[in-house]
Nucleic acid binder design. Structure first.
Lengths: 248, 248
DNA sequence: AACAGAATTTGACCCAGATCAAGCAATATC
DNA sequence: GATATTGCTTGATCTGGGTCAAATTCTGTT
């Protein structure tokens, strides 16, 4: 998951052919050449499952463009989203060859993959890769823990408001000044995906969206296009004491 | 408490004075000497808050003995536990000087601390420390995500059964063969702490404990001492498809 | 042993969110 | 242009777990 400290500009790192913050921010020419040899691209269509939980993983990868979700399921079909993969996010872990989650493309997606074994060997020789991955993993852990608070203790309305403010914030950091009061963005998730993320049913998501609209917290044009007239109001509804999103 | 006196063999790494898997498993004599210089011990009593969210952190640390919890709170007082710190676990992150969570001792606890700046500098020079921390952080992330599934999608009864099976499993890995059908252990948590961990109220925890007892899934001697006559039954109640605990 | 205080259990009641079931709107297919 | 298909909304009803309150252990102290 990406974070507030990661500026979109930092995603493309100069003339690095991989253009990925996890592995190339501090790579020298020699290291980049090594990476070049073990890398390949894979693309998936929206809705495709990229990796099934339990699958053999012979690669680690980073998202170049598009969005994917990490989900866990109970055998009776209950599913919980446990993470989002946004451009520049990393998936797969050195040292383990089985996937722990389902990874599903929610939009068309392009992944930059590295063969696992050589990547691990390279990591041994190239300390700053482990350091960078540690940094990213710690960010993800913070995000996951923030989400635990949401899942365990927030009301449905607060959950929705939290998700909206997070998406708004991320969109804003890409499209406009993050301090603007009014924000406009498209939801990258269906109601069902929102429900899976928030630990709710899609009906409750829909009802709370309608409630927030009725109360003037948000405006909806169509189903995906959202206008937030007053971000402070939305953040208040989210129930966070802090200024909002660690998440995403 | 059982955990104070029993240390898994793997925690003590040879003649390393720090005896901590995060930082010394592959340290040579020279590195150990450096660590020795920046380390100190702190101890806390059960109930004490070790670190407040937002506090300045001038150290990173690992638990030598005892148990602590990581909690997040909303400003109206709702709290959610987001992690447990057990002996050998690491807390604090290189590269950030503000704590993100409250850390509270649930038993008397001894921590081995390293001054942050020199630790970071040492990490730069000593690749395997970052590699080890990455490994540990990835494990924690998996645990957090497993917990997200629990928080978002499991019923109260399943949550309790999950927690019990996790504690049983961890205890078993210390005290006896993990494959035994019957298990006996002490809960290291109060009902309130269990509730904070599971995203429930303490009344619901109590009720579900009683229900599991009534249904013969567990036996209770006193409030903390638990006997599980049939671990498979408990795991079934936990609703996991896998064989249980990534967690803890 | 008796008491105080905390932790836990149990009961009665309530409500947020789940479930079940229709309708509606937008897009894709023929 | 008619018709599925898919995603979303809304309504009616039910229920798991929350809330409030009162016992009942347990623990430590005098």
């Amino acid at each position: 998951m990406a974070h507030d400290d990661v500026q979109p500009a930092s995603l493309a790192c100069g003339d690095c052919p991989i253009q990925h913050r996890a592995v190339c921010a501090r790579c020298d020419a020699d290291e980049l050449e090594q990476l070049e040899k073990i890398k390949y691209y894979r693309s998936f269509e929206a809705g495709q499952t990229i990796i099934w939980a339990g699958d053999q993983m012979d690669f680690v990868a980073s998202v170049v463009s598009g969005i994917a979700t990490l989900t866990q399921t109970l055998e009776d079909g209950r599913t919980q989203m446990v993470g989002l993969l946004l451009p520049s996010d990393f998936v797969g872990r050195p040292g383990r060859n089985r996937a722990a989650y389902n990874v599903t493309a929610t939009t068309d997606i392009l992944m930059c993959c590295f063969r696992r074994k050589p990547f691990e060997e390279m990591m041994e020789r190239t300390p700053h890769i482990a350091q960078r991955l540690l940094q990213m993993t710690l960010d993800e852990l913070d995000a996951a823990r923030e989400w635990m608070l949401l899942l365990g203790r927030k009301t449905a309305r607060e959950k929705i408001a939290s998700l909206l403010s997070i998406v708004a914030r991320r969109d804003a950091s890409i499209n406009m000044s993050p301090s603007a009061r009014q924000m406009v963005f498209d939801l990258p998730l269906t109601r069902e995906a929102m429900a899976d993320y928030l630990g709710l049913t899609l009906e409750t998501v829909s009802r709370q969206m309608s409630a927030l609209k009725r109360d003037g917290v948000i405006e909806l044009q169509g189903k995906r296009h959202v206008t937030v007239p007053d971000m402070d109001r939305l953040l208040l509804e989210a129930g966070d004491d802090s200024d909002g999103g660690f998440l995403i």
